[in-house]
Design a binder for these strands. Structure first.
Length: 512
RNA sequence: GGCGGGGUAGCUCAGUUGGUUAGAGCGCGGGACUCAUAAGCCCGAGGUCAGUGGUUCGAUCCCACUUCCCGCUACCA
């Protein structure tokens, strides 16, 4: 039986350039996607851009560009980001694509036919830059213009006809759904927030706009465009060829296993999205995970504070795998985390250079001097050898459960722990003193090579480039990198050739 | 205001279904070694586990109150 897994990142609004938050959502999703592939799942991994709305329309007008042309440029920077971050996404969806427009309009018609959408009127203070409505008491006047007292951005009074989705009808059905699916929203603290929000009562949701035109037209009324969430969220099924629910992609991959998102868009994914789907008689996704934010030091990154760490600059300066590793290992997953150059440098030096890099270096170099780059033959495992190797082999299911519960920090720390033990093993066994005991010496070197192989496979989802570089010294190909070979304590063929290895991670001199 | 989460070593965080000496990494001090990117290994210093009171033979872990931080939400208007 085929094992299928569908994971998504949010689709990103391309009105600014990609920032660390985008990079983080994408990288953690990629780690999970890659892990599931190691475990021989067919993985569909979706990312993309959300391109409609007044903000984009106005920005395009200012530049005198056709909005679609404008979006082509913006979307490309996010497509490029996927490449820069070495994402293994299998698709990249844009909300301006025909497949998506068709999908959204179809979902709309179904909701309309099921009497879930009605025409009424909306009024309120609207901020274009925040894309949010504010109530009267959230507005103040400054220098003769009205601004939001929350965000400080300019607001305008909007009064217009709008279609509404009958969200209020879904309160109890959603609560029942949450109860029956206790792990639908993770982490638990986010789940609590959603629950108390829904229990507080749901109002019908405005799902169309007349005030601008850059969007997907309401099928039955060309004066309206479909408003943001009903448009954007639907991307997850558009990419599976919805409304054709009989095709293999949809059949294999929906409902999605995991929507990975930032905590700021949790409500839309955990309340509106399942309500839309239930209302259309479609199954909701299996899980929504709202991860934390990456702060610069202990502050939110912002232009005014000048503390923005651009992911592209970081990758350029420190290398992609260093950034990926840092975000996985150093951020307690689910909580907010922070990144600074100092912490990143310290992480690179301790974990990647001294611990992992140096382990590879010392073992390969020892092998070269004593075995001329051949895997030792004539070995005999003793207790301490098996203890080290089985630390990985015996814990495959535990590792699977870490990933399936999005316990990414625990997964990362398990690997670090293996590295410490491997270094300690090599130290304690003192192979440089065992040259007269040939079988023992063979075994120590063999075990050391094996543990490097195993750990490098575990690291593959996190630092794919470096992992492949290390596994290449054993002449392993992609097909050898999976959870079947990882269990094997004698995967390496005696007397086979291995390759020399260069410096994996250069130490960073703090005086630079 | 309501609800929720949290305050554990200099820093980042684990943990304890209540039970003799509370853990890891980084940083710091010392030691032995030499295969290695002056890396790795060993030892050590450092914590009244936010405060007060209670339950208990016994609380960092349970309860109450206080205080500080964060999130969600509401409203005073």
């Amino acid at each position: 039986m085929d094992k299928n897994f569908f994971i998504t990142t949010p689709i990103y609004y391309p009105s600014g350039k990609p920032h660390m938050g985008h990079a983080y959502s994408s990288i953690v999703s990629d780690v999970i996607a890659r892990f599931k592939r190691l475990d021989r799942y067919n993985v569909e991994f979706l990312t993309g851009t959300d391109e409609h709305g007044l903000k984009i329309q106005r920005a395009a007008e200012e530049k005198g560009l056709d909005p679609k042309k404008f979006c082509d440029e913006l979307s490309k920077t996010f497509r490029d980001l996927s490449k820069t971050l070495n994402l293994s996404n299998t698709d990249f969806i844009r909300t301006t694509e025909d497949r998506h427009i068709k999908s959204v309009q179809n979902l709309w018609k179904i909701l309309e036919n099921k009497n879930q959408i009605y025409l009424s009127k909306y009024s309120g203070w609207y901020s274009v830059s925040d894309e949010a409505f504010y109530s009267d008491n959230e507005i103040k006047e400054e220098n003769g213009i009205n601004i939001s007292s929350i965000s400080g951005s300019k607001v305008e009074w909007v009064e217009e006809e709008s279609y509404f989705f009958k969200l209020s009808e879904w309160e109890n059905k959603l609560l029942k759904f949450y109860e029956e699916n206790p792990k639908f929203i993770l982490p638990d603290t986010r789940r609590n927030e959603v629950l108390s929000f829904v229990k507080g009562g749901l109002k019908d949701l405005s799902v169309s706009r007349k005030s601008f035109s850059w969007g997907i037209k309401v099928p039955s009324n060309k004066d309206h465009v479909i408003y943001v969430w009903l448009d954007a969220l639907t991307n997850y099924i558009s990419a599976l060829n919805y409304p054709d629910t009989k095709n293999n992609k949809y059949k294999n991959y929906w409902p999605a296993d995991l929507h990975m998102i930032g905590k700021d868009i949790l409500r839309f994914h955990a309340v509106y999205w399942p309500a839309f789907l239930l209302a259309a008689d479609l199954p909701p996704p299996k899980r929504v995970y709202g991860h934390g934010w990456i702060l610069s030091g202990d502050e939110k990154m912002s232009k005014s504070k000048g503390n923005i760490l651009d992911p592209l600059e970081i990758v350029d300066k420190y290398g992609l795998d260093s950034l990926r590793f840092y975000l996985l290992k150093e951020v307690s997953f689910g909580n907010d985390g922070s990144i600074t150059q100092e912490k990143l440098e310290s992480c690179i030096n301790s974990d990647l250079a001294n611990n992992y890099g140096n382990l590879c270096q010392r073992v390969i170099s020892f092998n070269e001097k004593n075995y001329n780059l051949l895997v030792p033959d004539n070995i005999n495992f003793e207790k301490e050898d098996l203890k080290l190797l089985n630390k990985v082999s015996d814990n495959i299911n535990t590792l699977r459960s870490y990933i399936d519960n999005q316990e990414l920090s625990i997964y990362s720390n398990f690997i670090i722990d293996c590295l410490f033990e491997a270094n300690k093993y090599f130290n304690d066994q003192e192979p440089w003193k065992k040259k007269s005991d040939v079988v023992r010496l063979n075994t120590i070197v063999y075990v050391s090579l094996e543990i490097i192989r195993k750990v490098s496979i575990l690291l593959n989802p996190i630092i794919p480039d470096t992992s492949l570089k290390v596994l290449d010294i054993f002449n392993l190909k992609q097909k050898d990198i999976n959870f079947d070979t990882i269990k094997d304590n004698k995967f390496l063929k005696p007397n086979s050739n291995i390759k020399k290895i260069g410096i994996l991670f250069k130490k960073i001199d703090k005086n630079d």
